[in-house]
Amino acid sequence: MRKIIGALNMTIDGICNHTAGIPDEAIHEHYTELLHQGDAILYGRKTYELMTYWQTILENPSEEKSMNEFALAIDTIPKIVFSNTLKEINWKSASLAQNNLKEEVVALKNQSGKAIFVGSRSLIIALLQLNLIDEIQLCIHPMVEGKGLSLFEDIRERMVFNLVKHKTFTNEAIILYYQPKKQ
């Protein structure tokens, strides 16, 4: 049985979007390694469209080696996109989900293999509410964004988590690894 792992960047004021944060070489290297440990990543339409940015890095490499390696890792890992509006996907390693979120994730979870990552705020919230998340990895950047979407603003019921480990980066960002407590 595979683990379903939600992994997101956020600021200390709880804002999560892929343009907030202070990415550096160590964070890019961390996420490159993480992607090598998984079999797929799940995205909603908005996050998928944001992540297509990395295709431009493949076409026009950065001077930063860690960004180029992350671009290659994100390009290589299979992506499953949940969207009610997209009719086609223009990324060779991406496909549209064939089932609803619950059916798709339960089927993926019941297969053997490596972890499945969830990289979209909306999908993490939905999967938490369905009790299908095994772990949440929150990379908290030492900054206040001041505007944007809060990761948990749509959660209306109490959820309790166990901190299982953490990792601190030289830029003072920290990743907290949480597992939901079984209630």
Rank of each mutant, 00 (worst) to 15 (best):
S66G: 04
L72M: 14
Q37T: 15
R158L: 15
E33V: 12
L108E: 03
K109A: 03
D134Y: 02
C16W: 06
M10L: 08
S120G: 09
Q137I: 04
A40Y: 06
K181D: 03
R156T: 12
A26T: 09
E64T: 15
I41R: 00
K87R: 15
L42T: 08
I57A: 03
K79A: 02
F169N: 09
K165D: 05
Y48D: 01
S62T: 07
E103F: 07
I41K: 01
A126C: 12
S66V: 07
G21H: 00
L138I: 08
L163V: 15
V81Q: 00
Y31W: 15
E59F: 08
L149F: 13
I22C: 07
E63W: 02
Q129I: 10
L8Y: 06
A26G: 08
P180Q: 04
A73Y: 05
L96Q: 13
K65F: 02
P180C: 06
A107Y: 13
S66C: 08
E63H: 11
M67K: 15
I116W: 05
Y53L: 02
G119D: 00
D39W: 03
K114H: 13
T32P: 09
R121M: 11
W54R: 10
K102N: 12
Y43R: 14
H36T: 11
D39E: 09
K165Q: 10
Y48A: 00
M51I: 12
E69Y: 05
I74H: 12
N131V: 06
P23V: 10
K102L: 10
Q111I: 09
T52L: 01
K3G: 04
Q137N: 09
L128G: 04
R2H: 09
N68F: 04
F70L: 02
A173W: 00
V160D: 07
L101R: 03
I89G: 02
E135H: 03
K167P: 05
I4W: 00
F70K: 09
E59I: 10
Y31H: 09
Q183Y: 07
P180W: 03
S62C: 12
H166G: 10
T47I: 10
P180I: 06
V160K: 08
K46G: 15
M143E: 09
L163G: 02
I15W: 00
L35M: 11
I136Q: 03
I175T: 06
E104W: 11
L42G: 06
K167W: 10
L72N: 14
P180D: 04
V105F: 06
L101T: 11
N90P: 13
Q111M: 14
L72R: 14
E104S: 07
N84P: 15
I74D: 01
L101I: 11
A173Y: 10
G38N: 03
I80D: 00
A115F: 08
H141C: 14
E69T: 13
M143H: 08
E135L: 04
S112E: 10
